[in-house]
C-alpha cells in the first residue's frame, strides 16, 4: 500500500503569482523524502499540490503533471476528494477535532464520510491505527476523553493515527514537529521510521538534523528573492545532500550559512 509519486515540470500559482517554478522529481514508494529550504520557498505549496489541498485557496492552480501510482492528479475529471482519501496529510499544528473524543478522532475519516462500520471493526481500526501511531499504550484506557485533553505531541500522533486510519498510499507531513518539544519530536521521528515500511512519506522540515535522521532522499528548494518563484535546487540521497552536495547554495544552507 504505497505508491510512487512523479512530478513533471510543475508550476504552481496563487492567482497570478507564480509560487513554484518548474519542479520535477520522483519519490519512491516506501521511502521518506524531506523537503528543506528557507521560508517562503514553496515547500508547503508543493506538498499541498500532492493531495490537491492547495486549491482550498481560491485562485490557486497548477501547470504540469503530478502522477501518483501512474495516475495524473490533475487530469480532467479527477475528484480531489478521492485523491485525498489516498494521500493523507499531517499539519504543522496538531489539529484534532475539538468536539470529538480520541476514539472519534481516529474514526473521523470513516464517520465524517457517513460510512457504516460495525462496532467490532471500528474497535479494531481504532486499536490498529493508534498502535500504528505509537499512541495506543498511552491512551487505551481513556479513548472517550476529548482529543484536546492530550499533550501536543500526543495530539500530533493522534492526527497521524487519524490520517493512517483511512489507509492512504501516501502520507504528507508539513513540519509535523515544529510545534513540539524535543521528546515528542523524537517519538514522531521514530514513528516516521516505522511508517515508511507501509507508506510513502513526504515531510517538510526546518530542522536539518531531522531531515538527515529520518529521510532517505532530500529535496532542497530555494528562492531568488521576495516575489520570485521558488525552485527545486537539488534533489538527491540525503547522505549526498548533507555531505557532498553538488550545488553551492545547498552546501551553504545545510551548513547553516543562511536560511
Amino acid at each position: 500500500m504505497s505508491k510512487r509519486i512523479e512530478v513533471h515540470d510543475l508550476n504552481v500559482y496563487y492567482g497570478d503569482f507564480l509560487a513554484l517554478e518548474d519542479v520535477s522529481l520522483q519519490i519512491e514508494p516506501r521511502s521518506v523524502t524531506a523537503f528543506i529550504g528557507p521560508s517562503g520557498c514553496g515547500k508547503s505549496t508543493l506538498l499541498r499540490t500532492l493531495n490537491r489541498m492547495h486549491e482550498v485557496v481560491p485562485g490557486a492552480h497548477v501547470e504540469g503533471e503530478v502522477l501518483i501510482g501512474g495516475n495524473d492528479l490533475y487530469a480532467p475529471g479527477v475528484d480531489p476528494v478521492l485523491v485525498r482519501r489516498q494521500v493523507g496529510m499531517v499539519f504543522q499544528r496538531p489539529n484534532p477535532f475539538p468536539t470529538m473524543s480520541i476514539r472519534e478522532n481516529v474514526l473521523a475519516g470513516v464517520k465524517l464520510n457517513n460510512r457504516k462500520i460495525s462496532k467490532a471493526d471500528s474497535d479494531d481500526l481504532v486499536e490498529s491505527s493508534l498502535k500504528g501511531a505509537n499512541l495506543w499504550s498511552e491512551v487505551q484506557d481513556r479513548l472517550h476523553k476529548p482529543g484536546a485533553s492530550l499533550s501536543g505531541g500526543q495530539q500530533q500522533r493522534l492526527c497521524i493515527a487519524r490520517a493512517i486510519a483511512v489507509s492512504p498510499e501516501v502520507v504528507l507531513m508539513d513540519e509535523p514537529c515544529s510545534a513540539l518539544d524535543p521528546i515528542s519530536t523524537l517519538a514522531i521521528e521514530d514513528l516516521i521510521e516505522e511508517l515508511k515500511q507501509e507508506y510513502t512519506i513526504v515531510i517538510v522540515t526546518h530542522n536539518m538534523q531531522q531531515a538527515s535522521r529520518v529521510s532517505d532522499k532530500t529535496a532542497f528548494f530555494n528562492i531568488a528573492g521576495a516575489g520570485k518563484p521558488g525552485k527545486l535546487i537539488e534533489y538527491d540521497d540525503t547522505d549526498t545532500i548533507f555531505s557532498r552536495p553538488s550545488v553551492q547554495a545547498t552546501e551553504d544552507y545545510v551548513s547553516g550559512k543562511f536560511g
Binding site: 489541498m53 485523491v83 499539519f91 475519516g109 464520510n113
Partner: peptide
C-alpha cells in the same frame, strides 16, 4: 472555526458539504 479543522477534514477525503455540516457547524 479554525481553517485547520476544515483542512483536517478535507485531508481525510471528506467532501466540502459534509465538512461544513459535521465539522464546521458542529464546532
Amino acid at each position: 472555526v479554525p481553517t485547520d479543522l476544515r483542512e483536517a477534514a478535507y485531508a481525510l477525503g471528506v467532501t466540502k458539504s459534509l465538512t461544513i455540516i459535521k465539522v464546521v457547524l458542529r464546532t
